[in-house]
Design a binder for these strands. Structure first.
Lengths: 240, 240
DNA sequence: TCAAAAGTGTTCCTGTTACACCCATGT
DNA sequence: ACATGGGTGTAACAGGAACACTTTTGA
């Protein structure tokens, strides 16, 4: 379905006034990043709408898959963003017109949208972002160096940033940002980056292994000087 | 606005496909209770819809005020309930017809509704529930002895029950279930009821006062045998 | 031999749990 | 006096924080 179809006939397929925005969080080169799409001169969160025949739960996963190719991804509800003025601005009107989309006066997309915001933890290497036909580009941005964004998307990302730091200390789900097999030094480093503080390596390792979430695999061959770390993965994960 | 108007013209005023359901939680005679409304032979949660010119936040408070007369109440977001089949059942159709409401084939109320569920902590003595014109009755039910409910409302209440027990241990907001002025024995009792376990009185008192949330008032005259307990209220609350 | 990873241990500190008392005070 | 509320104290225990030290192992 291209954007021309969505703008002109979207109400046939989707629930009006309701949208999904997903803060897709990744980790690369010691930096926490977030996937954004460019429209016009600002950026926005990947998102979508809820099909009439699918549940909200299903919609969040479908949207994520459409945008990144990812399936079975960790998705967590963040918050409802529901101010009166949440709608595509006049700037979008110009943009759609230029893109040759018939942006009718009564298009459902002109309406107000209540957004259900989620965040996803992904492995950037396995993520293959897809630009829709109206996005000019996509890019991974450092969480601490975000560009100007449309509507209230900056505050959605901010909410995700805060939520993530509290969540990882209780849910221990940060490993989802790494590859399927990872080392404790990698996990340790990741926590330090997210929490922006030094964590005692020894205690961290004991705590993580104490959760019983992870299982140790045969050693890693990293060709680095010094002893090579063990590889771990989540218990119950299928090999390969 | 009566229900005839809502059924027939609601889409003019409200966002379609989106509803608010509120688990209104109270405490009375040592029992945690929840306010329900009766339609037909089952019960449902008080709720409402989002007006086109108000924010979701405003809508939740307006709905609560309409249903209970309460303002400035503690409301906390619970979860999104968004299965495909969330819509007024055929049973409602009969009910509306009998009630003389013109339930047209294309009424917006036949549509699917995604529900934003919230819970509220209220003082039952100050709460004055209002029956709308289609509700047969309202009643406070013991959280542990709920009647049969419409749609998925039973699981919404269950979610609230679980959420409350974890929240009160971190947010210390359970006092909102009591009168503005309350005693430590009352608060102690309340926590024991919600958590369903005995709590060391002495330690509980130290912990609560240690939060610095409460201020002590002159003594209570309760006409009970023995020493009368101090009264407390939340710091920053206006007298009277 | 060097460097990184992994494991063990020690000390200090804090908070929790489960009590036992004692004091205050209204009927 | 008795019952209830309020405050203090204590001993056992668990866990976190900061740190030192040893062992393993690959280049």
């Amino acid at each position: 379905m291209d954007y021309k179809d969505i703008v002109e006939n979207g109400e046939q397929y989707f629930l009006p006034n309701l949208s999904i925005d997903t803060v897709i969080i990744g980790y690369q080169a010691g930096i926490i990043k977030c996937l954004l799409l460019k429209i016009g001169d600002k950026w926005l969160l990947p998102g979508g709408y809820i099909k009439r025949e699918e549940s909200v739960q299903e919609a969040t996963h479908r949207v994520l898959k459409d945008r990144t190719g990812l399936e079975h991804t960790y998705l967590k509800f963040l918050a409802v963003f529901g101010k009166q003025d949440r709608q595509f601005s006049k700037v979008f009107e110009d943009f759609f017109s230029k893109a040759g989309v018939n942006w009718k006066a009564d298009s459902w997309l002109r309406g107000r949208f209540v957004s259900l915001a989620y965040y996803a933890l992904v492995n950037i290497a396995e993520t293959h972002p897809v630009k829709s036909d109206i996005d000019e580009a996509f890019a991974w941005f450092d969480f601490d160096a975000l560009p100007e964004m449309w509507m209230d998307h900056a505050s959605i990302v901010q909410t995700a940033r805060v939520q993530l730091t509290t969540d990882i200390q209780h849910e221990y789900h940060a490993y989802k940002l790494l590859a399927e097999e990872f080392t404790m030094p990698e996990l340790h480093q990741l926590y330090q980056v997210i929490l922006k503080e030094n964590i005692d390596r020894s205690r961290f390792q004991k705590k993580m292994l104490g959760t019983g979430l992870f299982e140790r695999l045969p050693k890693l061959n990293k060709n680095t000087p010094g002893r090579n770390p063990y590889l771990y993965r989540v218990k119950g994960a299928l090999p390969g």
